[in-house]
Design a protein around this nucleic acid. Structure first.
Length: 853
RNA sequence: GCCCCUGUGGCGGAACUGGUAGACGCGCCAGACUCAAAAUCUGGUUCUCGCAAGGGAGUGUCGGUUCGAGUCCGACCGGGGGCACCA
């Protein structure tokens, strides 16, 4: 018997699918549509196992829905703008465009070898003017719709390299290249008004039933709607009042200080005449702009000497601090601190010796005895030590204080969101140019639409630090479209999240001369199943949801939610290895010597195995998909990434695992090949009166159809794989001479058909060798015969006092008394009961009997 | 620091809405085939006491709800993801 040769077979079927144009998405009214999408890759140069896993999951769905009679759209493209291309340009001197397009070409070849059912005619790259030109048009549409504005905001500034740094380029507060301490700087930047949709983005999460609960929760928290009180304190000796926002107006009597952000106008004004305060502010600005850096920093404050008057409690005035943990972006940039009921305030109060007065007391404690130690109390309770609020619930007290503030005219109830507007300006070359002209006379003027795409300059130099476009000798010099006088182009480019906020829409009509073809978008959208990593759970997905709504407002779409179903897949991990010299070692170099110790195959150095971690180039714990496909074929690689781990969890890549998958592909091949001679002709009907082993086999087959279908629909792909192993075991264990020949053929055919979405090449090959002349891809999905799925007897457990003592076989749906009698007839059960009295017998039909003693 | 997720044999995992914990795969052990090896096939494999029959323990830890908890509730510990300029 010949061995299965994936190299020849996979190439053969890929060619045939291609020639038959099977994966070309058709927009026809006779069939329902199904849009399958995986997050498009950044063209880093080579695909990694994470890609293989991601695209295989999507591919299984594509092929499955194709055979269930849908018009399937399964496209591929490239998230092709971004920093790595510029870094490569700086390090290797290659042009970002050349580097990117070379990478795309290499990765396309690799992806094609995986045998994905992709409509390659729709391929797009975001760095292509035919894509980003339309994006520029959309930017202008947003501008006309009032969704774009410009204001100052903070960036990480590297004082040595004279350049803006991304958060990931700030390491321990210093620039990654220069090592110089990073400063915060203000720059005029472009923003999109995502906050205008905050309520909608929050409310509509509820309707996203096919999104993971955790992603919805994360977005909910990110948007962060809160109801509170905005009010102002009188400041002793000053005309100005201090405007603060609080979500806990009930704790007003527990206030012991006020604090403003380091970039709050009051702080800046005081710093003009206070050198110490100025130094403190400068000190605080010597850290990155990331939330993490700000919040993880030790809480520090500067006492301004100013005092805020408590609105109710004349005796207790509150010192005003400038504090590094107050955020200018949230609320009013100023707070009152109630240390007893907020952890950050408590940490601050302990450091500066401020009073900690509990004003909310848990229901089971007395107001006089309750005190707060190292942890703030944020739970439920009753108000205490709060004059007229005493005894109220938190909710009542909040409503009461807000009411008083509104009546007294010194404050009002206010809804605040944590969500901030989306800053889309980047001071970089490799991105979409923002189509704006700055004119001294006319101000901000959009680039006329007939001049789009506004393309990036090609002759660019990375010799100097900073933004290469701004350094370009003539690109930015232009004339104002309004007054025709000399003017300057905007040199900022768009955040790459803008590119990925509408690519799934462009896929519906990638060649259209308008950004969006309404008919195509109406037909294909929303995406039915979107798959990608959880790391995109908030930003990318929220931006895309916002973009869809903004496009609707501009008349491009009639759609609110872009992704009807979302699936977040886990990472691919691998064991790490280090040699005696402390170097990380590629798994392909690890060998076991005769003594069973791990050594390097090149140098012979001893190796120690470390933790299992996410595959990463830096730790070298990577496996190259090319090597795997070369050695085992794409089907084996696909089978392995689908097996074992549930797709939403991390997968551990192991050499033994891929070998197990390889054995299974060979086993399937042998199973079908061995049957060849003995098979009846294709299409021979299976008799209805099977019995014995044939009937048992047929039941297993139909249960597998039912199970696999359900597993794929529910995205439990690892369970589908396990079921197929079971089915193969059942077929292999069958005593062929005793099995009805038509039944045996059916079993083999169903195995092949059920395996086909996962191992499409092998399935085609086996289908052909079973005597079929037409391709399996796209052929209708099998249906289970319901009559073969019903069981007439069940085995259930019998517990005595909650402990399993025996199992009994009984008729399905047998009545309580019958099952009870059967259970009590068991020797093991009687022994377990002994001479104890039976207090009660719980019978759950078809499940369990529990005899309570 | 804040938000979210996760924790089951030697390993990856299975267990529908609370009802026989460990399906399936990997590894390991024994056997068959072979001059031998590889491949393949058959059987076994949670731990523990026991020759066996049989008993006991067991789903990160501690506690709770229940006739019954891997599953629900509370606290804690370990691992991971996100935190707005990585994509």
């Amino acid at each position: 018997m010949s061995r299965y040769n994936p190299k020849v077979t996979e190439a053969k079927w890929q060619r045939q699918w291609d020639e038959a144009a099977l994966f070309r998405a058709e927009q026809t009214p006779d069939k329902p549509k199904y849009y399958v999408l995986e997050m498009f890759p950044y063209p880093s140069g080579r695909i990694h196992m994470g890609h293989v896993r991601n695209y295989t999951i999507g591919d299984v769905l594509s092929r499955f829905y194709m055979s269930r009679g849908y018009n399937v759209l399964h496209p591929m493209g490239w998230d092709a703008f971004g920093m790595p291309a510029e870094n490569a340009a700086m390090e290797k001197g290659t042009h970002p465009a050349d580097w990117t397009y070379d990478n795309i070409a290499a990765m396309r070849t690799q992806l094609k070898q995986v045998g994905l059912a992709i409509d390659w005619s729709r391929e797009i790259a975001t760095c292509d003017p035919s894509y980003y030109g339309h994006e520029q048009a959309l930017f202008l549409d947003f501008m006309e719709a009032g969704l774009v504005y410009r204001r100052e905001s903070w960036v990480n500034w590297d004082p040595v390299d004279q350049t803006v740094l991304a958060n990931e380029q700030v390491i321990d507060g210093c620039g990654w290249r220069s090592g110089a301490p990073v400063e915060r700087r203000k720059l005029s930047q472009w923003f999109l008004k995502i906050t205008e949709f905050a309520d909608e983005l929050l409310d509509d999460l509820k309707a996203l039933e096919r999104w993971p609960e955790k992603v919805r929760t994360m977005q909910e928290n990110w948007i962060g709607r809160s109801e509170g009180l905005q009010f102002s304190f009188e400041i002793e000796g000053l005309e100005d009042r201090l405007e603060v926002y609080t979500t806990r107006p009930d704790t007003i009597f527990g206030a012991s200080f006020c604090a403003v952000a380091v970039d709050h106008p009051l702080a800046l004004k005081l710093a003009e005449t206070n050198a110490d305060l100025m130094a403190f502010i400068k000190e605080c600005q010597r850290s990155g702009t990331s939330q993490e850096a700000l919040e993880a920093a030790e809480k520090k404050g500067f006492n301004t000497g100013l005092v805020a008057r408590h609105p109710f409690d004349e005796g207790s005035d509150l010192p005003i601090y400038v504090a590094n943990f107050v955020l200018m972006d949230y609320g009013t940039g100023a707070i009152f601190g109630c240390p007893a009921h907020d952890q950050r305030d408590l940490d601050f109060a302990r450091k500066y010796g401020l009073a900690v007065r509990p004003v909310v007391v848990p229901h089971d404690q007395s107001p006089d005895a309750f005190s707060v130690g190292a942890e703030a109390y944020t739970g439920p309770g009753r108000l205490a030590h709060s004059h007229f609020l005493d005894g109220m619930s938190i909710e009542d007290a909040q409503a009461h204080v807000i009411g008083l503030a509104e009546k007294g005219g010194w404050g009002r109830g206010q809804v605040t969101f944590r969500l901030r507007d989306w800053g889309i300006s980047r001071q970089r070359y490799w991105g979409t140019p923002i189509p704006i002209i700055h004119c001294e006379h006319c101000g901000i003027v959009p680039v006329p639409r007939d001049q789009l795409p506004l393309v990036l300059p090609e002759d660019i130099s990375f010799d100097k630090p900073g933004n290469p476009i701004a350094h370009h000798p003539d690109w930015k010099h232009t004339t104002c479209p309004r007054c025709q006088k000399p003017a300057l182009r905007e040199t900022d480019t768009l955040d790459t999240f803008v590119d990925s906020s509408w690519y799934f829409i462009r896929f519906t009509a990638p060649q259209s001369d308008r950004p969006i073809d309404r008919a195509a978008a109406d037909y294909w959208l929303p995406v039915d199943q979107y798959t990608g990593g959880v790391e995109h759970a908030i930003l990318h997905l929220l931006y895309a949801r916002f973009f869809t709504r903004a496009l609707k407002r501009c008349g491009h779409l009639d759609l609110d939610e872009p992704f009807a179903g979302l699936f977040t897949q886990g990472m691919v991990n691998h064991m790490t290895y280090r040699d005696e010299a402390g170097q990380w070692v590629f798994p392909s170099l690890v060998r076991e010597n005769d003594a069973g110790a791990l050594i390097r195959s090149d140098s012979g150095l001893k190796i120690t195995a470390g933790r299992v971690e996410k595959m990463s180039k830096s730790k070298r714990n990577v496996v190259d998909p090319d090597d795997i496909i070369d050695q085992y074929g794409a089907d084996t690689a696909r089978w392995f990434v689908l097996s074992d781990s549930p797709p939403e969890r991390d997968l551990i890549w192991t050499e033994t695992g891929i070998e197990g998958a390889w054995r299974f592909t060979q086993r399937l091949w042998r199973l079908v090949s061995a049957a060849q001679g003995a098979l009846v002709a294709p299409g021979t009907p299976v008799r209805a009166d099977l019995s014995g082993d044939s009937l048992d086999l047929r039941r297993s087959v139909h249960k597998a159809i039912e199970g696999v279908t359900g597993d794929i629909t529910g995205l439990h792909l690892n369970r589908a794989v396990a079921r197929l192993y079971q089915l193969a075991n059942a077929i292999a264990a069958a005593d062929v001479p005793n099995i009805d020949p038509a039944c045996y053929r059916e079993a083999l055919e169903m195995l092949v058909r059920l395996v086909s979405p996962m191992m499409p090449h092998l399935a085609e090959e086996l289908w052909q060798s079973l005597g079929h002349k037409t391709m399996l891809t796209g052929a209708p999905w099998p249906e289970a015969d319901p009559a073969l799925l019903v069981e007439d007897s069940v085995t259930i457990g019998v517990q005595v006092g909650g402990k399993l003592r025996d199992t009994i076989d009984c008729a399905k749906d047998a009545s309580g008394p019958d099952v009870e009698a059967l259970a009590l007839a068991s020797d093991k059960v009687r022994r377990a009961i002994g001479d104890q009295t039976i207090r009660k017998i719980v019978v759950v039909p078809n499940r369990i009997v529990n005899i309570v003693i």
